[in-house]
């Protein structure tokens, strides 16, 4: 009997609505508390992860190094200067105008106010940010490395990476892909340090300064004999082609090209 009466109460419409409201409030409170409390750590993690990869591309850290936020900050303060580039003109944004380290290029690319539709390209890029980030690495006084952010559509999703160039703005020093969704074991080798090492010493541009670096099928020659080609990822033609397309796009006239021209001519106000 007792059970029957509770069953009736429990199914009364007013009670149902009150119950639903209480459950919603409790769930919302739990979730919101967790989100608010953990947000700073998540943001710090995301930035740490990205900056760690800048350091890896620049050769200032090894993949697998366990760097804390303090370590990354120390290395950044010592060697790295983050700046923003106006992609269209190739001019550097004045240093005091923005905090380049806090710049969120992905947010800038999605926001219609700070981006524009990309010209037709094979790299699967729909929108281009007005400004993009560049990291100057100085071991002594002069800039001895440039790290640029690249992205493009791979086989399963967007691949994000950094490429590091010598001061001639042509020779590759290092490369990382820190976020991608490529097939494990095949395309996912883009993130492998072994493959990334074969990029060292390759040239981006031919003698007419056109971005020509290409990931080929099979094995490329040595960087001296065959500077414009890179070993393909075996079994991952789509990913290999995607890397070619995105590198040629970002280092070409619609990407960092204008800035790199200025830099090479000594016109960039570093």
């Amino acid at each position: 009997m007792a059970e029957a009466s509770t069953a009736r109460d429990v199914n009364a419409p007013g009670y149902t609505i009150r119950f639903a409201l209480v459950v919603c409030l409790i769930c919302a409170a739990v979730v919101a508390t967790a989100a608010v409390l953990l947000e700073p750590r998540q943001a710090a993690n995301a930035r740490l992860y990205m900056e760690k990869n800048v350091l890896i591309a620049a050769g200032l850290a090894e993949p697998g190094d366990d760097l804390s936020i303090a370590d990354v900050d120390a290395l950044f303060n010592r060697y790295v200067e983050a700046r923003l580039v106006d992609l269209e003109t190739g001019e550097l944004v004045p240093e005091n105008a923005v905090d380049a380290r806090a710049f969120d290029q992905r947010a800038a690319r999605s926001d219609p106010e700070s981006s524009r539709p990309a010209p037709a390209n094979k790299a699967g890029i729909h929108r281009l940010p007005e400004r993009a980030v560049v990291y100057f690495i100085r071991r002594d006084e002069a800039v001895d490395e440039l790290v640029l952010a690249v992205e493009g559509l791979g086989m399963w999703g967007t691949m994000y990476g950094f490429v590091s160039l010598d001061p001639d703005a042509n020779t590759v020093r290092g490369l990382t892909y820190y976020e991608h969704r490529e097939t494990p074991g095949l395309g996912a080798e883009v993130a492998s340090p072994v493959w990334q090492r074969v990029w060292q010493g390759r040239k981006i541009y031919d003698d007419q300064w056109r971005a020509r670096i290409t990931v080929i099928k099979g094995i490329a020659g040595s960087p001296e004999d065959d500077p414009l080609h890179v070993d393909g990822l075996s079994g991952a033609t789509v990913t290999s082609n995607a890397v070619t397309n995105l590198m040629q796009f970002w280092l070409g006239p619609h990407g960092y090209g204008p800035f790199l021209d200025r830099f090479r001519n000594g016109e960039a106000d570093t």
């Binding site: 429990v10 199914n11 119950f19 639903a20 459950v23 769930c27 739990v30 979730v31 967790a34």
Partner: peptide, 22 residues
């Protein structure tokens, strides 16, 4: 014993979804 039968599944889903989000 307090869950109304009509919204049983969605209450369970709400609880699970909150836990998963956390």
């Amino acid at each position: 014993e307090r869950i109304p039968t009509a919204i049983r599944i969605i209450v369970q889903l709400a609880i699970i979804a909150s836990l998963v989000t956390v």
